[in-house]
């Protein structure tokens, strides 16, 4: 269906964007939930610092995030070198690298949403669960996690929608390789740089807009639906 009005290259960019966004959410979701839990519930030195570090990608220029990743995960970087030498994993200029860059950029979005979800959980319910014989893990999986799940899901969908359009960090860390790292925004950028690419740019821009809008609406829908589900409607 899409192949009808999208060229093969455009279709490839769309597929790659969905792929990168999916992988980025898969990569960041569990760490984001753990960090959100630590920030919302933990009492440890350095909590304020962690809070700030988590939010950094929101305020630092994406190019800087990409550059930092290049320094860390490049084949000579302190993390990238062992990955490459011992496991044969190369992240720069690959789809995996694009997913990593996207994950880092959307990490704060998930943390924020999950944290709001946790803060909405009544600690009194956990106390009640403990008096009914539920230990810490039991409480977390049977009470806390289900009650914070709207926040997790909304965070994941928002991060997915944002991940479809991540540009600066991806182009800096993973470059702009068609079929490998050229996601929708990169393809749009390339099209605007190419004579006669106006049609491609317009189609992809419209597509990006629709995907982002759809993602936000879906996140809102899920959050409402789950809130109502919890309220017993």
């Amino acid at each position: 269906m899409m192949g009808g009005w999208l060229s093969a290259e455009e279709y490839q960019a769309l597929r790659l964007s969905l792929d990168v966004a999916t992988r980025s959410v898969a990569l960041s979701l569990v760490p984001a939930v753990l960090v959100a839990l630590a920030l919302a519930r933990g009492r440890f030195p350095g909590r304020v610092v962690l809070d700030a570090v988590v939010l950094l990608p929101l305020v630092v220029p994406p190019v800087v995030v990409g550059w930092a990743l290049l320094m860390l995960f490049g084949v000579r970087g302190p993390i990238g070198a062992p990955l490459h030498d011992w496991f044969g994993v190369r992240l720069v200029f690959t789809t995996e690298g694009a997913a990593l860059a996207t994950a880092v950029m959307s990490f704060p979005l998930i943390v924020r949403s999950v944290r709001l979800g946790i803060e909405g959980v009544d600690a009194g319910l956990e106390a009640a669960a403990s008096t009914l014989g539920a230990g810490p893990f039991d409480r977390f999986f049977c009470v806390t996690l289900p009650l914070m799940s709207p926040g997790i899901l909304a965070g994941a969908v928002t991060a997915f929608a944002a991940g479809l359009g991540e540009f600066g960090a991806v182009i800096t860390f993973a470059s702009n390789i068609p079929g490998e790292t050229q996601t929708l925004p990169l393809a749009i950028y390339s099209a605007t740089q190419t004579p006669g690419g106006e049609g491609t740019a317009a189609r992809l821009a419209a597509l990006s807009f629709c995907l982002a809008m759809g993602g936000l609406l879906l996140a809102e829908f899920i959050a409402r639906r789950m809130r109502r589900g919890l309220a017993g409607a």
Binding site: D122, G124, L125, A127, A128, A129, V143, P146, L147, G229, L230, A231, G232
Partner: peptide, 8 residues
């Protein structure tokens, strides 16, 4: 006092 039933 506030029952604290699990809403889910």
């Amino acid at each position: 006092q506030d029952a604290r039933l699990f809403p889910h």
